[in-house]
Amino acid sequence: MSDTEVQDQLAQASARFDRAMARLDQSLRELNARVQRQQRIEVDTQRLVHERARLATELDKTAARAKRLDDSAHEVSRRLVEAMETVRAVLSKAE
């Protein structure tokens, strides 16, 4: 094998090596970008989980308050009916 052939093969091997290194570098950049996107997604997911828990707690509190208000409204209504019946009874006796 002549020096020229050795030089050509060496140049070809070096070019293949450079292309492989460029592909590796590009793959690493893409992988890094995917990892960063995944990390942002994980942070966003955690934020959403916490927000969901906060909203669920708030909803539970609001539902409990609504039930208390509804119970109170029923009690007030019951007492008003009793009071009206008492007034009617008193008025009917007075006639």
Rank of each mutant, 00 (worst) to 15 (best):
Met1Gly: 03
Ser2Glu: 07
Asp3Ser: 00
Thr4Val: 07
Thr4Ala: 12
Thr4Met: 11
Glu5Gln: 03
Glu5Leu: 06
Val6Arg: 11
Gln7Ile: 06
Leu10Gly: 07
Leu10His: 10
Leu10Val: 07
Ala11Tyr: 05
Ala11Met: 13
Gln12Leu: 09
Ala13Trp: 05
Ser14Asn: 15
Ser14Thr: 15
Ala15Val: 02
Ala15Trp: 06
Ala15Thr: 06
Phe17Tyr: 12
Asp18Ser: 15
Asp18Cys: 09
Asp18His: 12
Arg19Gly: 02
Arg19Cys: 01
Ala20Thr: 13
Ala20Val: 09
Met21Ser: 12
Met21Asp: 09
Ala22Arg: 04
Leu24Gly: 05
Ser27Gly: 15
Ser27Asn: 14
Leu28Lys: 09
Leu28Ala: 10
Arg29Thr: 05
Arg29Gln: 11
Arg29Glu: 09
Arg29Phe: 03
Glu30Arg: 07
Glu30Val: 01
Leu31Pro: 00
Asn32Ala: 14
Ala33Cys: 03
Arg34Ser: 14
Val35Gln: 08
Val35His: 06
Arg37Trp: 03
Arg37Ser: 07
Gln38Asp: 14
Gln38His: 14
Gln39Asn: 13
Gln39Asp: 14
Ile41Met: 10
Ile41His: 10
Glu42Pro: 02
Val43Pro: 02
Asp44Ile: 01
Arg47Gly: 04
Leu48Val: 11
Leu48Met: 15
His50Pro: 01
Glu51Ala: 05
Glu51Asn: 02
Arg52Glu: 06
Ala53Arg: 11
Leu55Met: 07
Ala56His: 07
Thr57Glu: 15
Thr57Gly: 14
Thr57Phe: 07
Glu58Arg: 05
Lys61Cys: 10
Lys61His: 13
Lys61Glu: 13
Thr62Ser: 06
Thr62Ala: 12
Thr62Met: 03
Ala63Ser: 11
Ala63Met: 12
Ala64Trp: 03
Ala64Glu: 13
Arg65Lys: 15
Arg65Pro: 00
Arg65Met: 13
Ala66Glu: 10
Lys67His: 08
Arg68Cys: 06
Arg68Trp: 03
Leu69Glu: 14
Leu69Asn: 10
Leu69Arg: 10
Leu69Tyr: 06
Asp70Ile: 02
Asp71Glu: 15
Asp71Ala: 15
Ala73Arg: 12
Glu75Gly: 00
Arg78Val: 00
Arg78Asp: 08
Arg79Val: 08
Arg79Ile: 07
Leu80Val: 02
Leu80Pro: 01
Leu80His: 00
Leu80Trp: 00
Glu82Asn: 04
Met84Arg: 14
Arg88Ala: 09
Arg88Cys: 01
Arg88Pro: 01
Ala89Glu: 11
Val90Leu: 11
Leu91Phe: 04
Leu91Tyr: 03
Leu91Trp: 03
Leu91Val: 08
Leu91Lys: 06
Ser92Thr: 08
Ala94Tyr: 09
Ala94Cys: 14
Glu95Leu: 12
